[in-house]
Computed example of a mutant assay.
Amino acid sequence: MSRLRRFSLWRASAPVALMCAGLLFATSATNARGTDLRPSRNTTLAGLVEEQSRRSATLTRQHAELSQDIEKLQTQQGSIAPKLAKQLKDLSEQVGTVPVTGPGLTVTLKDAPSQVVKDNPDVDADWLVIHQQDIQAVVNALWAGGADAISIQNHRVISTTGIKCVGNSVVLHGVPYLPPYKITAIGDRRKLQKALDDSQYIDNLQDYVVKFQLGYEVKTESSIAMPAYEGTLDLQSATVPGFPKVPTASPSVTGSGR
Rank of each mutant, 00 (worst) to 15 (best):
V253H: 14
S67V: 04
Q213G: 03
I202W: 01
T108C: 00
E71V: 00
A195D: 04
G47T: 08
L45E: 11
A149I: 09
Q115S: 07
R5W: 06
N120P: 00
R41A: 13
P113S: 11
L128T: 13
M19E: 06
V123A: 10
P247Q: 05
K164F: 08
T75L: 05
N31D: 01
D203F: 00
G242L: 00
A149N: 09
V171K: 11
D188M: 07
P251Q: 04
T232G: 14
P247S: 04
A17R: 13
A12I: 05
Y208D: 03
D207A: 09
G47Y: 01
A85S: 08
V116K: 05
A238H: 06
L205K: 00
Y229I: 04
S199A: 02
S53R: 12
Q115H: 12
H155S: 07
Q193E: 14
M226W: 02
L105R: 05
Q200C: 00
A185I: 04
Q213F: 13
V218R: 10
K182M: 15
V170T: 10
T106G: 02
G96M: 06
W10T: 07
L109V: 04
Y229K: 01
T97M: 02
L45V: 15
R3S: 14
I70L: 14
P103G: 06
A57C: 01
A228T: 06
I152H: 07
F243W: 12
P244I: 07
V16A: 13
Q193M: 07
Q115C: 01
Q236R: 15
R190A: 14
Y216S: 03
A17V: 13
Y229M: 08
R156A: 12
S256N: 10
P244N: 06
Y216N: 06
P179S: 04
G96F: 02
V157H: 11
